[in-house]
Design a protein around this nucleic acid. Structure first.
Length: 359
DNA sequence: TAGGCCATCTGGTCCT
DNA sequence: AGGACCAGATGGCCTA
């Protein structure tokens, strides 16, 4: 990307430099030209009195060359013609062709800077996405949702530190999902093995208490739709049934994971958040989402459940109506998270927190 | 087709 | 003067 930026900016810079040379050279000429053109002043002296229309037309940059030359020497014309009071305030400078060109170059440079700035901003946002509780490389949270989730995450962690005790996951997810859109809420809830309906409406009335995984990852036992998460029409989490239905209805679903599994060097300038690929339990992403790399896929299918390595768990595992595995029935019966291993070889920065939940 | 999200351009403002 | 930052406008892409 940098090379692309350079290739974009460099010609502009080169042109600007050339233009600057031209300007400095032509400035000398301008003095001469202006002196030569000052005699036009008699005709032009009255024009500024007509108000700002002249300035506007000047800004439009469609002046003839003779006007440009005259206007460029505004001070010359104004002060030399002297006796008539001119309009006050900042004087609009006429746009000579050189000035127009310079202005264009400035604009192009500013555009390039702005692009770079926005790219940096997006890069930082990507890094943020990697450290908030839910991360998918193939289906990113929108910018606004990322910021909201990050804010909630910080507040939730602060709350945990302040209280010195672990909250139940329902409370935790509630904190995380405050103000988030429904799709993002579903995503976070899915990350935490939580039935969204319970979480949103029943407040865990069945008394179920979920525990944060001791594993750095909380792997969604069912796959999760990964179409446009923020789509207003997307409502996969109207309940576990809905999520389950999605998980079996075709391609385009993926699991998401709690960040973790790495122990990055935060002091390293190279640290870009989690480098761990997303945990996707399917590889069949529609459209360009299918272009996930082989590296990604190697993670997609790598889950260990109590010693059982399951490939495409959404197909090989069966869940009950509440999202719990059939046979195991309720979500409490989901295998202990410490039995869930992912093929990540780095310890998470959150392991202390997770251990905290596990204790 | 509507709506959401995004990248980019652009002009304005503030600061150095 | 120039750079950083910001917000509005615009058009493209994608999904339902």
């Amino acid at each position: 990307m940098l090379s692309r930026l350079f290739s974009e900016v460099l010609p502009d810079v080169q042109r600007l430099a050339a233009d600057w040379v031209d300007d400095t050279e032509s400035d000398g000429c301008k003095v001469k030209e202006e002196r030569e053109n000052c005699h036009l002043g008699d005709d032009d002296l009255d024009e500024p009195q007509e108000g700002s229309s002249r300035a506007e037309s000047e800004m439009a940059g469609d002046d003839d060359d003779d006007d440009d030359d005259d206007g460029d020497e505004e001070e010359c014309g104004d002060e030399n013609s002297g006796d008539k009071p001119k309009k006050r305030g900042p004087k609009k400078r006429k746009m000579t062709p050189a000035r127009v060109e310079r202005s264009k170059m400035r604009r192009m440079k500013a555009n390039a800077r702005e692009r770079t700035r926005m790219h940096d901003l997006n890069s930082a946002l990507d890094n943020l996405r990697k450290v908030v509780p839910c991360y998918s490389k193939t289906q990113k949270l929108s910018k606004i949702e990322t910021l909201r989730l990050a804010k909630n995450y910080i507040l939730a962690l602060g709350e945990i530190l302040r209280n010195g005790k672990r909250p139940d996951v329902v409370t935790y997810v509630q904190m995380l999902c405050k103000g988030l859109s429904q799709p993002t809420t579903n995503l976070v809830a899915g990350c935490l093995q939580l039935n969204t309906r319970n979480f949103l409406t029943e407040q865990c009335t069945d008394g179920a208490r979920f525990h944060m995984p001791s594993s750095p990852f909380s792997v969604h036992p069912y796959s999760y739709r990964c179409s446009r998460l923020s789509s207003p029409h997307y409502q996969p989490g109207a309940g576990a049934l809905n999520m389950r239905a999605h998980s079996y209805s075709g391609p385009g679903y993926e699991a998401v994971y709690m960040p973790g599994g790495t122990s990055p060097d935060y002091n390293s300038p190279d640290y870009e958040g989690q480098h761990s690929p997303p945990v996707c339990v399917n590889g069949g992403l529609p459209g360009k989402q299918q272009e996930s790399s082989d590296t990604d896929r190697s993670y997609h299918y790598s889950m260990h459940y109590s010693g059982l390595t399951t490939s495409r768990p959404s197909h090989s595992l069966h869940f009950g109506p509440t999202g719990a595995r059939s046979g195991g029935a309720q979500s409490e019966n989901i295998p202990p998270f410490h039995d869930v291993h992912l093929h990540h070889d780095r310890a998470p920065p959150y392991e202390d927190l997770n251990a905290f939940f596990h204790n």
